[in-house]
Design a protein around this nucleic acid. Structure first.
Lengths: 226, 226
DNA sequence: CGGTTGTTTGAGGACGTTCAAGTACTGTGG
DNA sequence: CCACAGTACTTGAACGTCCTCAAACAACCG
C-alpha cells in the first residue's frame, strides 16, 4: 500500500474517524491488487474471502438473472468500501462485481476483518454509520423503482449527479450501464433521454445540461419522493 | 414496559447479545405507546424523534409518490426494530409508517439512543450485524424488482414465506398490501396469483399451498437470483 | 482503415396498469 | 341469525409503458 493510499483511506467516511493505529491494524494483512477493466472480482453465491476497498478505478455490483441478463445494483468509485455486509455475516455474496475501469483494489482478508471488528469499538461505530448511509441509498433506489417511471428515474438520477442544482453534468458511466442501474434497457434509456429534452435536458455524449433544475424536480417529484 | 416486553427484547437479534444492563440503559427513557390500526407514526420527511421497536401488532413502512399512491417497502412484526438509520444519522425519514394491526410500540428517544450508541461498544457491534442483515434484504428486493416479472416475484415471496420448502403458507398481510410490497397493483397481484395455478400454487383467502416447491423455484429462479 | 462496441431509432409485442364492473368477504347492528 | 354496508378481491377490456428484435449510425481502438 502506498502512502497516498493511506491518505485516501483516511479521507473516506468509514475511516476518517478512526485513529491511524486502527487503520494499521486493519490493513497489515491486506494487499493491493491491480485489475483490468472487465475483470470479475467475485460472483454472486461465492463465500466472501475479502473486504474490498477501491483505491482507484471504477467497479459495478451486479445481479444476474437466470436468463443471464445483468442488472447493475450500484456503482463504486475511489474510496468506496463494498460488500461489507456479506463479510460481516460470513454469508455468500448476493451480487457479482465487475471492474469497469482499471482498478487498484485493497483486499482485506475477511477473517481478519471480522477479528478486528470483534475487538475495535471505533471500527464498529464507524461501520454503523457507513451501513446506515448505504441503507438509505438502497431505500431510495427501491422507492425509485416502485414509484417512478423510467424518464422520471433518469431525471432524478441526473439531478443527483448535479447535486440537485442542475447545470452541467458529466455522466459517470456508459449509458448502457446507467440503464441497468436505473432498471431499464439501453433502448429505454435512450428514449427516456430523448423525452427529457421537453423538460430542458440536453446533451451530447457524456456531457449533459439541465437547463431548469426546479422544473425537472417537479417533473420527477424529486423532493416528494426524496 | 412489562416484563414480557423485556423478555421479547432479549429474544430479538439486535438485543440478544447485549447484557441486561445495556438494555436497561437504552430503555429507561423509553415508553410504550398503543396505536390502533390505521394510525400513522410518522411521515416521510419528518425529523426522527424516536427509535421504534414493535412489541406487538403489525406495521408497514411505505413510500408515497407525488400522485399519492403508496408503495410498501417492508412489513414489520413483533420484535422488529425499524428506521434505525434515520435515527443514527439524524436525517429525515425516507418513509412513512402505518399501523396495520393494533400495535404496542416501544419508543426510545432518538437523542438518547444516539447518546448510548456513542458510549456502548456492544450496542454498536449488535447494530452492525442488524444493519448488515437488513442491507441484504434490501439488495434482494432490488434484484427482485430489476430481474423478475410480477408472477416470479410473487412466487419467490411465497417461497420465502414457506421457508423455501413449499407446503402450506399463510399470507401475512392483505393481498392489496402484499401487492404494494412486490411492486405491483392489486389487480396484477390477482392475475399473477391466477397464473401461478399453472405452477402448482393454489389457495383460498390467506391459505396458500405450494404443491411442488422445486418446480416453483425453477419458475422464479429462486436459487439463481438468491 | 476495418472491426468492435455503444447508441439511437423504428416497428411490433408483452407485461402491467387503469378503469370499470361484478363477486366474495368481514364485521356491525337489528 | 340475518340483513346490510363497507371493503377486499377478482375479472374483463382498453390503454400505455417498456421490452424485444432489427437495423442504421456513431464512436472508439486496434
Amino acid at each position: 500500500m502506498r502512502s497516498d493510499d493511506r491518505a485516501l483511506l483516511k479521507s473516506t467516511p468509514l475511516f476518517s474517524d478512526l485513529p491511524a493505529t486502527a487503520i494499521d491494524r486493519l490493513t497489515y494483512t491486506a494487499f493491493v491488487q491491480n485489475l483490468p477493466a472487465g475483470a470479475v472480482l467475485f460472483q454472486q453465491g461465492d463465500q466472501p474471502e475479502f473486504l474490498y476497498i477501491l483505491l482507484s478505478g471504477r467497479v459495478a455490483l451486479t445481479g444476474r438473472s437466470a436468463e443471464g441478463d445483468e442488472a447493475v445494483i450500484e456503482f463504486f468509485r475511489r474510496g468506496d468500501v463494498f460488500i461489507a455486509p456479506a463479510v460481516i455475516l460470513d454469508l455468500p455474496y448476493l451480487m457479482s462485481t465487475r471492474v469497469l475501469q482499471d482498478a487498484r483494489i485493497l483486499m482485506i482478508p475477511a477473517e481478519h476483518f471480522r477479528d478486528v471488528l470483534a475487538r475495535d469499538p471505533a471500527l464498529n461505530a464507524a461501520l454503523v454509520r457507513e451501513l446506515a448511509r448505504h441503507w438509505r441509498l438502497l431505500i431510495r433506489q427501491i422507492k425509485d423503482l416502485k414509484l417512478r417511471t423510467a424518464p422520471q428515474r433518469l431525471a432524478a438520477y441526473l439531478l443527483d449527479l448535479s447535486g440537485g442544482h442542475g447545470g452541467n453534468v458529466l455522466l459517470p458511466e456508459e449509458r448502457k450501464l446507467m440503464a441497468g442501474r436505473l432498471g431499464m434497457t439501453p433502448e429505454s434509456f435512450s428514449r427516456a433521454f430523448a423525452q427529457l429534452a421537453a423538460e430542458g435536458v440536453t446533451g451530447r455524449g457524456r456531457n449533459v445540461v439541465i437547463a431548469d433544475a426546479a422544473h425537472l424536480r417537479g417533473f420527477c417529484a424529486y423532493d416528494d419522493i426524496l
